[in-house]
Amino acid sequence: MTGTILSSATHRRTATAVVLTAALTGVLAGCGAPSTTTSAASAPAAKTAGASPATATGSSLHMITNQGHRLAFHVTAGHLPAIVLDAGGGLDSSYWKNIVPALAKKTGSEIITYDRAGMGASEAVPGPWKVQNAVSDLRAGLTALGATHDVVLVSHSEAGEIATYLTREHPGQVAGAVLVDASLPEFATDAEIARVAAATQARVDALKGHATTKADRQLLAVAANFVPDQRAYHKIAWPAAVPAILIESAQTPFPTSATDARAWRDAQAEFAHAAPNRQLVVAANSSHDIPLDRPDIVEAQIEAMVKTVR
């Protein structure tokens, strides 16, 4: 199924973030696993007393602590199943600001967005980026907010890696997913890992000791263990029992590299064909920023998944 034409969104990310998403996004991940112990390595999440007043979009801010750092979660009230929106690398919850009110109106569902560690209003975590930490952060926040089962997870770009690990490690929490030009294990072949690492090495070297933006710092954190992390990611698979809708951009994250773009499309197709409960949708006239270019398609597929899992 192919989307219809819509004008491109006017907002675009900074040049640094473009580098992050265009060259790394398909393969990189974020930061955390929910903890139930109080060891130094893994402290339980704690929800702060009360939430901030509702914002102009009708959402409330909840600062949740996990493993010693605070994370910002934004909740728009509604019924279950909860819809959780997870932005790509170098981005925060504001990426979804136009989609949230539209989804709330169309579905009536509770909608949760959040800032990964080091992004938006969430505190940074020093050291290399680890997907296990990112999973822990998301899991901790959802647990504190009561979204412990039948979640509809919407993951853009880098967040696809977090979604894959979360769904595998916590069966039952995710009822279905919409993967928006998402990083998939199928893409992380040795050839693509090497190509992406080589393509970004100059940028990484230039940033060392000079990273000024949050996106710069995340790029360095992800690049630190990129090769072994991606090799590990390639060995796992999305749980067959969890339905998924894939939305693939027309341009892919690699609009200037035919080789990488083809590998990206092949990975999306391989994932989609691996189980009967998966669907592949191509968003016509879209860059990698499908939520900005084609929010109509993203909203429609989320609505479809919500109906499927209810």
Rank of each mutant, 00 (worst) to 15 (best):
R203N: 07
D181L: 03
V174T: 14
H210G: 01
D205Y: 07
A177R: 11
R195A: 15
K208I: 14
R203T: 15
T200W: 01
V180A: 07
A191G: 01
V196L: 12
A163P: 12
K208M: 10
G172D: 04
E192V: 12
E169P: 00
A194F: 03
G176H: 11
H170R: 11
K208P: 00
H170P: 00
E161G: 13
T200A: 14
R203Q: 11
G172H: 06
T167H: 09
Y165F: 12
A182C: 08
T213M: 09
A163L: 06
D181T: 12
L207E: 02
P185T: 11
G209R: 10
E192R: 14
A188L: 11
R168H: 03
V180I: 15
D190M: 02
R195G: 00
A163F: 07
P171D: 01
A191R: 12
Q173G: 00
F187C: 01
D181G: 13
T164Y: 04
A177N: 10
V178W: 08
A191C: 02
D181K: 05
A199E: 03
L179D: 04
A194N: 07
S183G: 15
Y165D: 06
T167F: 01
I162C: 09
D181Y: 03
T164A: 08
L207A: 12
H210A: 15
K208E: 11
E192L: 04
